[in-house]
Amino acid sequence: MRKENSREFHKREHELSLVITEDTNFEGKFIVTGFHGLGGIGHLTVRYLVESGLRQKKARKIGYLIGRTMPPFVEVLQDGSFGNPYELFELGNAIFLLIRFQPFLEEQAVLADILTHFARERKISGIILLGGIDINAFENAKNPPIVYIANKFFMDSWIDNLKRAGIPAAPKGIYVTGGVALILSYATHRNIPAVALFAPTEKGIINRQAALALAKKIKEFLNLPVDLMEIEEELRTAEEVLRKMQEKLTKATVEAEKKEDLSQLFT
Rank of each mutant, 00 (worst) to 15 (best):
Ala213Lys: 12
Ala256Gln: 06
Phe35Gln: 14
Ile20Thr: 07
Asp160Cys: 09
Thr69Cys: 01
Asp160Asn: 15
Ile114Glu: 06
Ile192Tyr: 12
Ile146Thr: 07
Ala137Cys: 15
Phe198Ser: 05
Arg100Phe: 01
Lys29Asp: 07
Ile231Pro: 03
Leu16Phe: 00
Pro168Phe: 08
Val241His: 04
Ala141Ser: 15
Pro103Ser: 06
Leu88Glu: 08
Thr253Met: 14
Arg60Trp: 00
Gln108Tyr: 02
Asn161Ser: 15
Ile135Lys: 15
Gly34Trp: 12
Ile127Lys: 07
Ile135Asn: 13
Gly173Pro: 08
Ala256Ser: 09
Glu139Gln: 15
Lys3Thr: 13
Lys216Tyr: 11
Leu49Ser: 02
Asn207Glu: 03
Val19Gln: 03
Glu75Asp: 10
Phe96Lys: 01
Phe154Tyr: 14
Lys61Trp: 01
Ser185Leu: 07
Phe104Leu: 09
Lys152Thr: 14
Gly173Asp: 11
Leu16Arg: 00
Gly63His: 02
Gly39Glu: 04
Ile31Tyr: 04
Ile128Tyr: 11
Val46Lys: 02
Glu230Pro: 01
Leu214Gln: 02
Arg2Leu: 13
Phe9Tyr: 15
Glu90Ile: 00
Gln102Arg: 10
Ser157Leu: 15
Gly178Ala: 13
Lys258Tyr: 10
Asn151Thr: 08
Thr33Cys: 13
Ile149Arg: 14
Met245Ala: 13
Ala141Ile: 15
Glu22Lys: 05
Ile192Ala: 09
Thr24Glu: 09
Ala181Trp: 09
Arg2Gln: 14
Thr267Asp: 08
Tyr48Thr: 05
Gly37Arg: 11
Ser17Glu: 01
Lys259Met: 07
Val76Ala: 08
Lys123Leu: 11
Ile41Tyr: 06
Gln78Asp: 11
Thr116Val: 12
Glu8Leu: 13
Glu51Met: 04
Ala165Ile: 03
Thr177Ala: 15
Glu51Ile: 03
Gly39Ala: 04
Asp79Ile: 06
Gln264Pro: 01
Phe104Met: 08
Glu106Phe: 06
Val180Lys: 13
Ala256Tyr: 06
Ile218Glu: 01
Tyr175Ala: 15
Ile159Asn: 11
